[in-house]
């Protein structure tokens, strides 16, 4: 597909374009505001962010795949509880596996790993009446996971740098630029600013596509 057709198609189906690009244009954290609790409170360092990311990698796609197979004929009220139940079971195995590999590190995250079980990031699909195919559930699960992991790592890195002057435990600068970044309200502030920057990126990308399309039209 040549660039002109691609640009026109993306613009013509902009909502669809946004929905498919879960990492950047429709990031589950910075655009949709999902998983705010663990990110604002627990993702204070790169290490904690890695733990959260591993947990989501182990839970999100398997939950989505299992529920897409089993809940095809379920009504929304039934799905409301089947989704969290499936994610809770999957989480149990994932949590145990993380404990075996990382020791007490995941346990030190407190309630912020277990609450992923009912977080809209994992279970929000129960509200949709549209049935999801097996392949689509895998693809969408992986897209959402990638979007969350990118946001989580970025956030953890930025917060650790601002609050402690280090990244991954390695000291970069001796000054603490913004000590409040380690607290929950600092997390809300930084996520809010990142959301605004993300919105700016999406708008700039959209404008860039429009200009490109207009350029193609002028040139014929």
């Amino acid at each position: 597909m040549d660039r002109k057709t691609k640009v026109n198609r993306e613009l013509a189906n902009w909502d669809d374009t946004v929905r498919r690009r879960k990492v950047l244009l429709s990031n589950p954290v910075f655009i949709k505001g999902l998983a705010l609790a663990p990110l604002s409170v627990a993702a204070t360092t790169l290490g904690n962010s890695l733990m959260l990311s591993i947990a989501v990698i182990l839970i999100l796609t398997p939950t989505r795949v299992i529920t897409s197979l089993i809940t095809r004929r379920m009504s929304v009220p039934l799905k409301t509880f089947f989704y969290p139940l499936t994610s809770a079971v999957v989480f149990g195995f994932a949590y145990y596996a993380m404990y075996k590999v990382f020791g007490t590190w995941p346990l030190n995250m407190g309630a912020y790993l277990p609450i992923l079980v009912v977080d809209p990031l994992i279970v929000k699909n129960f509200e949709k009446t549209r049935k999801e195919s097996f392949l689509y559930s895998i693809i969408n699960g992986l897209r959402n996971t990638a979007g969350f992991v990118m946001a989580c790592i970025l956030l953890g890195t930025i917060r650790e740098f601002l609050a402690y002057g280090s990244i991954g435990g390695l000291s970069i600068i001796s000054v603490k630029l913004l000590p409040m970044a380690r607290y929950s309200f600092g997390g809300f502030l930084i996520i809010g600013v990142m959301c605004a920057l993300w919105n700016m990126y999406v708008n700039i990308y959209h404008d860039k596509l429009k200009k490109e399309a207009a350029g193609y039209e002028l040139n014929g």
Binding site: Y183, S184, F188, L189, G192, A196, L197, N199, N203
Partner: peptide, 23 residues
């Protein structure tokens, strides 16, 4: 409110101020 801040970003900034006060 600036276009890029409308919706979720400004709500989170608002909540962060209240959270700072409660803290």
């Amino acid at each position: 409110v600036p276009a890029n801040f409308r919706g979720l970003p400004i709500t989170l900034i608002y909540i962060s101020v209240l959270a700072m006060a409660v803290y």
